[in-house]
Design a protein around this nucleic acid. Structure first.
Lengths: 337, 337
DNA sequence: TTGAAAGCGCTAACAG
DNA sequence: CTGTTAGCGCTTTCAA
């Protein structure tokens, strides 16, 4: 019934026939394996070229027991954070000749299970999980045997799972120390919901950088500009106003900056502001533009690719590692840009 | 050398052995093909279950000449527009048991060629191209035979290529007519660079909705908030100010709204503003929130999936189709939200 | 109703 | 140095 045929009609046998050699010889020539006379090899390569021959990876994979594919399961419905990760991952894997299956599970365990099932059927060489929230997530229910599994921007409950995350705490320290270096003494922290591990880690980095923390300067709320505006208003009403604000993300930072602008409070002179994520459409559209912490997600994706390749080779084992963040200064913390 | 083994060690032969039947019988039982005694079938299914048997798609594909995979090649480096398209596409394909290879070409022809090559090697059943700019793009250089190829949010030069796009012109008409329905008479259009086909189409829709167009009210510039701010300033300096502005995207719209806010011009009472893209982080963070036109990209992706499946079945042929946009009214055009 | 066998396209071990 | 052959795991005639 399936009449559909791949565009490449030619098989190795066709190449061999055209080159006037045997099947095995053609295979050796194309895989540079065994020892052939260079004349014969050239004959085969020529024939292959003329025919536009392209080996059938399916057959290769079937034989070798390795498919040169990996699956990526995202729980962020391909959101803003997943994108650069995917990009870095795909680049590195592609260079290694590995193709990437994309699956979107959107935090639906049933969907995720079906995806894993499908990927196992396709005999992927590895699996990458990624998710919007870098919180602990349950290990996938299915038996994966010893299939390499990597969690990126996401974590597993299994003790020695391989996880790759940005160093949120370090990033927060970067931000806070940047503000301290400006000579600021009362630094507020307006951030996201406390049930995000990233929020807790960033807060910890912030607190660790200060000689003493003032709890009235720490405000949790949703990840939105509206919250940034509200929090700014609250901070301004304080008897002892902050002279700097470290925001948990760039949307909050932008809300803060806009409110300060509305009230004609100079940024950064009166109050310096720094965000997190370095989301350029936010940070650069704001007036003034917002300094931020970049999580280097593309590098995270690239590192994930390298690590997964090592795991597939059987070289590397699990464990959590965190990649450093980078400070991106802009006008909201620097008087002369 | 490749010692890597898939987690599923069990083969159909193992299942057959365990069920005490022949290989062929096991296959028939699992594929519900042929006619077997229900007793035998159950025996096989039981054995398969106990073993956690999962057929090897590679072997199936090799035999059937159909891989149940398709490739998606993005030129948007997995950007904001590609995401929802991917999401819709993946959902529909997954339901049909088809897995999606993700490739990022980023407008690099060489990279794109390598990706296509790899995908052909994997014997994909179809190919989807997508790109940030819905402009004409050259057909891929390689011979694809009669492999189904679909362009989504992107186009090909081949005359009868299958293309799926949002109806930009219709969307622009929706926006303009919405403003007209508010009783506005001087409607400006602040939009993106003229070399985008989408910009030209939206402008055409805008012009088509007006009884007479005033060229001084049409401004082209970059896709940024900064441009929105500048354009707004220019429009306000006009002797005969507009009473409504249709922006080419939500970033421009937001720049406009902010400038109006700065100058204490009431939105929508003095000047109504509508955007395009319905990018909620922009539209909903603005004060007031911005009405916009939604391109329904997720639906576009879903429709792409359905269409591609039809093409794979050999059912459907090429041609360009455009899917309708939707008006999403918010406070920037409606006095009582 | 079930079993045996051929073959999808390729690789690798073994002969010649 | 090159040809032959036996599979990888599955589906599908064709016999029994």
């Amino acid at each position: 019934m399936p009449e559909a045929k791949s565009p490449n009609r030619y098989t190795l046998r066709d190449v061999a026939r055209r080159a006037g050699v045997s099947l095995g010889t053609a295979s050796k020539a194309l895989n540079k394996s065994g020892t052939l006379r260079s004349e014969t090899r050239d004959k085969v390569l020529l024939a292959a070229n003329e025919l536009g021959f392209r080996p059938n990876d399916l057959a290769q994979a079937l034989h070798r027991g390795q498919s040169f594919t990996v699956g990526l399961i995202s729980n962020d419905s391909f959101g803003r954070f997943t994108m650069p990760i995917m990009e870095g991952l795909e680049t590195v894997l592609h260079e290694a000749g590995i193709a990437l299956f994309m699956c979107n599970a959107t935090d639906d365990p049933e969907r995720e299970k079906r995806h894993i099932d499908q990927l196992l059927g396709k005999r992927v060489d590895g699996l990458v999980f990624t998710g919007r929230r870098a919180d602990r997530r349950p290990a996938p229910g299915l038996a994966l045997g010893n299939l390499p599994v990597l969690y990126v921007f996401s974590q597993s409950d299994e003790p020695d799972a391989a996880c790759l995350l940005p160093d949120d705490e370090g990033g927060a320290r970067l931000a806070t120390e940047h503000l301290l270096a400006l000579g600021r003494t009362r630094i507020a922290h307006v951030t996201g919901p406390e049930d995000f591990e990233a929020v807790r880690l960033r807060r910890r980095g912030y607190e660790a950088s200060l000689s003493q923390v003032d709890p009235t300067l720490i405000l949790h709320g949703p990840w939105s500009e509206a919250w940034g505006r509200e929090a700014a208003t609250r901070l301004l009403a304080l008897p002892n106003r902050p002279d700097a604000i470290f925001a948990g993300n760039d949307q909050i930072a932008r809300g803060i900056v806009e409110t300060l602008r509305d009230k004609a409070i100079a940024v950064p002179d009166d109050i310096a502001v720094i965000g997190f994520d370095n989301w350029s459409v936010m940070a650069e559209a704001s007036r003034p533009q917002i300094s931020s912490i970049d999580m280097n997600l593309k590098s995270l994706g690239e590192e994930a690719g390298h690590r997964l390749i090592r795991m597939i080779r059987g070289e590397s084992q699990g464990g959590t590692s965190r990649l450093p963040c980078t400070l991106v200064p802009r006008a909201s913390t620097t008087t002369t840009p």
